[in-house]
Design a protein around this nucleic acid. Structure first.
Lengths: 337, 337
DNA sequence: CTGAAAGCGCTTACAG
DNA sequence: CTGAAAGCGCTTACAG
C-alpha cells in the first residue's frame, strides 16, 4: 500500500503539503494541488484511516452493541444505523453483547480500546449500578437505546414499554375480555418487567383477577410461543384472550390454538407486540402494538453523531411510544355480551 | 485516557517493558510484571488498538459489506459473523453496499482505507469486470459470499441458486403441475437470473410451455408478492401452482389468492425459497427451499479468519446447496389426476 | 504558499 | 531480563 511519503516523493512536495490537499486545509497553489492529485491517482493512494485517527485523536467510528439479531426489528435498526453512519462518514463497528451483562461490559471495553467516538448500546441486561461503573471506567459518550437511565451523564432513547404493554392489554379489556392468558418472556430484562407490570396493573384497574396459571414464559421465538400456548391450553382453564409479548410468540400461539380447534378470534382473541411485517399477511391477520423502531434509531444516531462532532446536546432522554394496530385476530368477547 | 507512557512512569519501567507484558512477549521478571499489572489496574489502562494496529500493521478487524437487512436470513448472517469475529478477537465493521455497484466499490475503498485484515463481500450487483477492477486497486483479501467468481484470486462461498430454484420447480412438476405462475424479482441480480433460468429449463425439460403472462416480478417483500399475485390473477388465465422467489413473496401471494377465494393448496400450490421461520406457522404452512445460511456464513468467516492469520488456503470456491422442505402449501395437481 | 520537526500511542529489533 | 531508539503513517503548529 502506498503511503503519504510515496505520494510526496512522486509529487516532489513535502508530506505536509500532501496532507493539506488531502484534508483541503490551508492555502495551496493550484498547480501543486494538481501535482499531488496526479501522484495520488497514479499510486492509487488511500490515506490510512488508522494513522489519521491516531494523529487527530478521532477515529471516525461508532460502536454498536446489541444482542438482538432477529426479526424485522433488528434489520431496521441495523440498516438505519449503517446508513446514517455512512452518510456522516463514520464507520459502524457492530458487536454482540450476547445478552449477558458481563459480555456487554467487555464489548464496551473493546470499543473504547478502539477509540470509537461514541458508543450505541442497545442493552437489555445491564443494571443501573452497571451503568454507574461504566462511567467510572471511560469517558467515551454512550447513547443507550431501549433503556431509561437515571443518570444525566448518559443519553438514552427508549420505548415506553409499560405504555406499549398497557395498550395491548387495554385493547383486550375494551373488547370485553376478562380472562386473559399471557405469554411473557423468560429473559429477565427491564423490558419484560415493565410489560408484565403493565399487564398486572391494567387488570387491577378493572378489578380483575390475574390467574397465574394462564401466564407462561416464552423465549421470543415462534416456537417458544407455540410451546407456551400448549402449556396454557393444558391448564384446561377458560380464557377468551391471549396477550403475547411479541408477534413471533403470538403467531406460535395462534398455531397452537388452531391445532386444538380453538378459533381465533371467535373463541380467543390474540394480540402481540412489534408489528412484524408478516403480521398483516397471516391468517387471521395479527392485532399488534407497533414500536417506532425507525424513529428510535434515527434519534439515537442523531445524538451519537452530534456527540461525535462535539455538538452540544441538551436533551438527555427521549421517549417513544407505540400504537395499537387493530387487525383480525382480536374481536369483542362474545361471552360477555 | 491513560497511555502506555503513564503506565510506564507509574510502574517505573520503560514502555518497551510495558508493551512486553501487555503482549506477553519475551522474558519478564515476575516482580516487574506484577508492577506493570498494578499500574495498568490503577490507571484503568486499555491499550489503544489503533496505535497497535499502526505499529503492527494488522488492524484486527474484518469488514462486512452487505445490502440485505431483511428477514431471518440476514439476522443469522450477522449474528454468526459477529460471534465468530468476536471469538477470534477481531472487530466487525459493517457497511451498507446499498445494493448498488458504485456504492459497493466505495464501501470496499473505505474498508481498505481502514486497513481491514480481510473483507467479506455479500454482493448482488458487482459484475465479473468489477471484480477484476477491484483486484487492481487493492491487495486486501476478499471473500465473496453468494457469488461464484471466475477468478482464483478471490475466495468465494455461494449457494447454487440454479439448483435451489430447480428444486422448487421440480417439486411442483413432480406433483403433476403443468401451468406454473412465477413471482420473480425486479432486482437484476445474478441470483435472480439463475433462478429464472432454472425455472425455464425445468419446464423445457418436461416439454412444457412457459406462459409469460403468468410471470410477474416482485420486490422480495410480502407486499410485493401480494401485488404481483394480484396481477397474475388479473390475467384470468388458469394455473395450478405458483412459485415465488422467496418466502415473503409467497406469503403475500397466498394472501392475495385467499382474498379472491382461491384455495391453497387445493386449487393452487405455492412454494417459496428461504425457509423463513414463520413459514411453518402460517396457514397453510409453506413449502419452501431451505438455504443453509448458517453454514455459508461459517465457511466464509473461517476463510476470512484464516486469511487474516496468514494461514494457507487451498480451496477458493465452496458451493452450498439447498433442500426442499415440504409442508402444507403444495399438493398434487387434482386436475391432472 | 510550503517545509522541517514534533507528536499521536504503540511495537520491535538491537544492545547490553 | 530491560531500556533507548527508530518506526508505523498520518497531522499540525511554527517558521519562513
Amino acid at each position: 500500500m502506498p503511503t503519504i511519503n510515496d505520494v510526496s516523493k512522486l509529487a516532489g512536495v513535502s508530506k505536509a503539503t500532501v496532507s493539506r490537499v488531502i484534508n483541503n486545509k490551508g492555502q495551496i497553489k493550484d498547480s501543486t494541488r494538481k501535482l499531488v492529485f496526479q501522484a495520488m491517482e497514479t499510486l492509487n493512494y488511500k490515506p490510512n484511516t488508522l494513522a489519521q485517527a491516531l494523529a487527530t485523536k478521532t477515529s471516525n467510528s461508532i460502536g454498536l452493541i446489541t444482542s438482538i439479531f432477529d426479526g424485522n426489528y433488528f434489520g431496521v435498526l441495523l440498516k438505519e444505523s449503517a446508513k446514517l453512519a455512512d452518510q456522516a462518514g463514520k464507520q459502524l463497528i457492530v458487536t454482540d453483547g450476547h445478552n449477558d451483562p458481563q459480555r456487554e461490559m467487555e464489548a464496551i471495553d473493546s470499543l473504547v480500546a478502539r477509540r470509537c467516538d461514541v458508543i450505541l448500546l442497545y442493552s437489555r441486561k445491564l443494571t443501573q449500578q452497571d451503568f454507574k461503573d461504566i462511567k467510572a471506567r471511560t469517558s467515551v459518550p454512550i447513547v443507550v437505546m431501549n433503556r431509561k437511565i437515571n443518570d444525566a451523564t448518559y443519553y438514552s432513547v427508549w420505548f415506553d414499554h409499560f405504555h406499549a404493554s398497557a395498550l395491548a392489554v387495554n385493547h383486550l379489556l375494551e373488547l370485553g375480555h376478562t380472562t386473559i392468558a399471557c405469554i411473557t418472556a423468560s429473559v429477565s430484562s427491564r423490558t419484560v418487567k415493565l410489560r408484565y407490570k403493565a399487564f398486572q396493573e391494567c387488570l387491577k384497574q378493572q378489578q380483575l383477577i390475574l390467574n397465574k396459571d394462564l401466564v407462561v414464559a416464552g423465549d421470543y421465538t415462534i416456537e417458544g410461543g407455540y410451546n407456551a400456548c400448549k402449556q396454557i391450553i393444558a391448564q384446561k382453564q377458560p380464557f377468551t384472550a391471549l396477550y403475547a409479548f411479541n408477534d413471533d410468540m403470538a403467531i406460535g400461539a395462534i398455531r397452537a390454538l388452531h391445532e386444538v380447534g380453538i378459533k381465533v378470534p371467535e373463541q380467543v382473541s390474540v394480540v402481540g407486540i412489534d408489528n412484524e411485517p408478516f403480521g398483516s399477511y397471516v391468517t387471521p391477520s395479527l392485532t399488534t402494538v407497533e414500536l417506532p423502531i425507525r424513529d428510535i434509531t434515527n434519534a439515537a444516531m442523531k445524538i451519537a453523531l452530534d456527540l461525535a462532532n462535539g455538538v452540544e446536546i441538551s436533551v438527555t432522554e427521549t421517549t417513544f411510544r407505540g400504537k395499537v394496530i387493530t387487525r383480525e385476530s382480536t374481536t369483542a368477547n362474545s361471552r360477555s355480551i
